[in-house]
Design a protein around this nucleic acid. Structure first.
Lengths: 192, 192
DNA sequence: GTCTATATAATGATAGAC
DNA sequence: GTCTATCATTATATAGAC
């Protein structure tokens, strides 16, 4: 019954939108109920573990999505430069050019909930390592590749925050445009 | 009566710590009461506007702090390169090498509360423009300076998030170490 | 699987004594 | 300026009918 599966994915997509907009604490069950169109009792039917389970499943969903659309392509066939450019295009789609915030950024702030921490950590690490792998493939030193990959992921996260905070969506576009060069270009690392 | 003034600053410092750790929604009055040592009623004596006023005053406090420790030094005397290095050192202190998160990152996620939005926006824009000013002073094109400044601020914000999310504090140090070069170095902007 | 209705706990916020 | 006690509201979560 594929219809049922699609239905749950639809719910998760709505949940994803809410969590990335409001964070965990800001995503109240009332909001969730309203924006999913499901009553609270129905939500607990689908997610007996309540809001925590919803968050965990959304993160799992994001992890799968990332694996499929970022990690696998980066590790697959194609020229490194093209793979990086594809990634940037995917990121741009994913965040709608900076219009949408980042789920990870929205959910990290909370002190408690060690449950997610491992999920979030894994998502980021996998992504960083996939980028670094492409750079190594491109001929960059492994250590330098890791550093650049970390920088790139940090810059994407930061760009989303600064864009959201300043309301200047053009900023996101500018930073994304420079990403491929940041990653692939030769850098001296020395101050003149 | 300077004692009284210092007392309020002490309260604001505690509030700052709570908000940047938990965000606005996560900072419940119970937590605030507990961590400030003040009863709820006492908190409302100091902040009749409640949690919203607390957040606003904390942001004003941060803005003043930034003006004093970041903006003014960047616009003051000294060699551009040294001023950038000083800024990075200040940032490192400010976030305790990535141990502490960023207030802005923690408070942005919320959809509502337009009250802060302007404050947060102003803090970031002032900072970006101050950095860009130094780069112009260094001889970089104004347009390019602005772009690099945006990138730097985004990278700092992102580094804090990625560091928090992965728990790898070393990452923050690595990224901060490269910041001066990122800002001051000649870049071709062309992919080989 | 969805709903209405409700339980229970925690939230932001006040009143009033000291 | 601080406290205890309490308010109304909203939070998460459940029971049970359909």
């Amino acid at each position: 019954m594929p219809a049922k599966i699609l239905k749950r994915e639809e719910i998760l997509l709505r949940l994803f939108a809410i969590f990335r907009r409001s964070g965990f604490d800001g995503a109240t069950l009332s909001k969730i109920s309203e924006e999913t169109g499901l009553g609270k009792a129905s939500l607990y039917h689908h997610f007996p573990g309540g809001k925590v389970q919803m968050a965990e499943e959304v993160l799992r969903f994001v992890e799968n999505w990332n694996d499929l659309h970022l990690i696998v392509p980066l590790g697959g066939k194609g020229r490194p430069k093209q793979k990086i450019k594809n990634m940037v295009a995917t990121i741009n789609d994913m965040y709608e050019g900076g219009k949408s915030g980042c789920l990870i950024g929205a959910m990290v702030p909370e002190d408690s909930f060690i449950e997610y921490k491992d999920q979030i950590k894994r998502i980021l690490i996998k992504w960083i390592e996939a980028i670094a792998g492409v750079l190594v493939e491109y001929g960059v030193e492994p250590k330098e590749s890791l550093l650049r990959a970390e920088e790139a992921v940090a810059k994407i996260q930061g760009a989303l925050i600064v864009t959201k905070a300043t309301g200047q969506r053009a900023l996101f576009g500018r930073l994304m445009k420079n990403l491929p060069a940041d990653l692939l270009e030769q850098r001296s690392g020395v101050l003149r």
